[in-house]
Amino acid sequence: MLLINNLSFYRNNTIIFEDLNLSLNNGQITQIRGKNGSGKTTFLEVILNILEPKNGDIFWEGKNIKKNIFNFFNVTTFIMDQNTSTKKLTVLDNINFWKGLCASKLTNADILLLLETFNLLKYKNTKVMYLSKGEIKKLELLRLILEQKKLWILDEPYNHLDNSSIEILNQTFKDHANKNGIILFASHFNPSINNLEIIDFH
């Protein structure tokens, strides 16, 4: 369970958000909505300790994440709005790098099956720079399943995706929530997910 207590963040003395309280329970999917520039990405980066909050604390399973940051990273997958795949390497090279980085237990057969699901199997030996934007985004989303972490934090996951991929992503979210996972994502898109909790950023 992720607990956010009285979190405030200022940028150049202007308030981005103030006294924010939030608790994310196991099996809960939460969406952050808001206008452009309302601080959605900033909020996610504050949770991940990339940005320093002015005051307030974040707790994961009762422990302050600031003191146990690598324990927190151990259970978290962060999908950014940028694509973290290396453009000059092939799809499989990228996947092997991510897999080693999080010590994933997936076998090669599992990975080929995953690529098949996302329609990327034919590109497995292609360099990422030759893929389209949607395909690169799908490759990025593979990290969710590859890393097998409990807490998923996503920034604009629906960008560049086609309808069938959106369906797959929604189904993946539901499956993860059924397995007691926690999902927090920021997006303008209104996905068709039941029991979706919405936080509105003004």
Binding site: I50, F73, F78, M80, Q82, T84, S85, T86, W98, L101
Partner: peptide
């Protein structure tokens, strides 16, 4: 520059 702009540094950092 490249690793910074596409966020790889953050991902490696989160990898421990």
């Amino acid at each position: 520059e490249e690793d910074f702009n596409n966020g790889v540094i953050t991902i490696i950092h989160m990898g421990g």
